[in-house]
Write a protein that binds this DNA or RNA. Structure first.
Lengths: 210, 210
DNA sequence: ACCTATATAGTCATTCTCGACTAATCGATT
DNA sequence: AATCGATTAGTCGAGAATGACTATATAGGT
């Protein structure tokens, strides 16, 4: 059903996953998430973490176990997961795996307004993108191989990175094809495209460079 | 550089694109975006639109041209794009096309915590996902074909839908492979996976169903 | 003995987002 | 002539998310 969660930031899922293992204080969660590379899949900001954690406490998904203080450093508030938290973790996780949800990507937004640039420039920009994507996928692949070899990680623990790599590679392939199709006029003739732009630019203002 | 934009919600990009053509009031923007299917690529909510629009006015990207009132209906405030707005539109669009940015997807978050479920259940969930993805990609393809034929749209105007379809198809393919690899023990043996879970569940709480 | 960079552990004020709500008009239906 | 649902046009308040900032401890170099 994908019904509205009380705490919907995916960071909350990560928090529950960590507390499922053992109680921790928020700062430690950050450390562990970084060690395991989970911050590559779940957007991690200090400020968000603390706000998510307090929302989770409010909703009864986690509860403070003890508060420690060493010297004059700030307090460390150690949380543990509740039964409700364990249940929420499992239902949420199941839902995420079972049901595809629509994602709005930045690139798609850009593509939507592609006719806003002259075709020559659009092609040039997409070629730059291809360059970036080649570098990026190369690095991702290397990092995955390194992690697997160095720490002897079973693939189970890097599936999310393989997923990310797969998406980027698919994009790379597709953008290459798109450039081809733009060149060959497959998308609509370049002349036509130019005339759309001309219509828009009659009013003056700064012209996009061809 | 991807330096921080003054108004960063992609809706702002859509607003500038529309006002590049002609002045409009916000409600009309919604109508036009819906007609052109842009709400499929840019998350569109009334409340966000109005707040984005006023932020854009504050930042000088658009400016109110006139305010009309018919009878006792609410006012319609008609906006036009400014020179700064035109420039911002072009720089932003260029950046979106040129530079890949990291996107955090829900599915990736789910995958990160895959070891949190017993393998048999994980497989079953992913199989359900495959079913959903098959249906979804089928519908997307049909909608694209329909739009192209019915309205004789050049591909240029549906690239963003083709992009979305491509991503879903890549995902579908990949998930099928993942299920295979889980079954064959390619990801790490299922016994091992179970023992990770067992360790975690010692403390009690509700057990995930195998 | 002193300085600095980094790690530790967070708070706060502002901005952003969205669901829920308001309110008028119009056309069709009783 | 009264009512109902769809469309037009937008407001509001509550909660979420983030960038900027604070403050202490400690290891290492000089």
């Amino acid at each position: 059903m994908a019904s509205k969660r009380k705490v919907s930031n995916p960071l909350a899922l990560a928090v529950m996953a960590l507390l499922y293992e053992r109680p921790m204080h928020p700062y430690e969660m950050v450390t562990v998430m970084r060690e395991r590379g989970k911050h590559e899949t779940v957007r991690l900001r200090y400020s968000s973490l603390y706000s998510v954690v307090s929302a989770m406490e409010r909703e009864g998904l986690i509860s403070p176990r003890e508060t420690m203080r060493e010297g004059r450093r700030p307090e460390r508030k150690i949380y543990e997961i509740t039964d409700a938290g364990r249940e929420e973790f499992l239902t949420w996780l199941r839902e995420l795996l079972r049901e595809p949800v629509k994602e709005y990507t930045q690139f798609a937004a850009g593509l939507s307004f592609l006719p806003g640039l002259p075709p020559e420039e659009a092609i040039a920009l997409l070629e730059e993108r291809v360059g970036h994507l080649e570098a990026e996928t190369g690095e991702m692949r290397a990092r995955i191989d390194y992690a697997r070899e160095e720490y002897a990680l079973p693939r189970l623990f890097v599936v999310e990175s393989e997923h990310e790599l797969m998406l980027r590679e698919a994009e790379l392939d597709w953008v290459r094809g798109l450039i081809e199709d733009m060149r060959s006029g497959e998308l609509g003739s370049l002349a036509e495209w130019h005339s759309i732009l001309a219509g828009r630019n009659e009013g003056g203002g700064d012209e996009p460079m061809a």
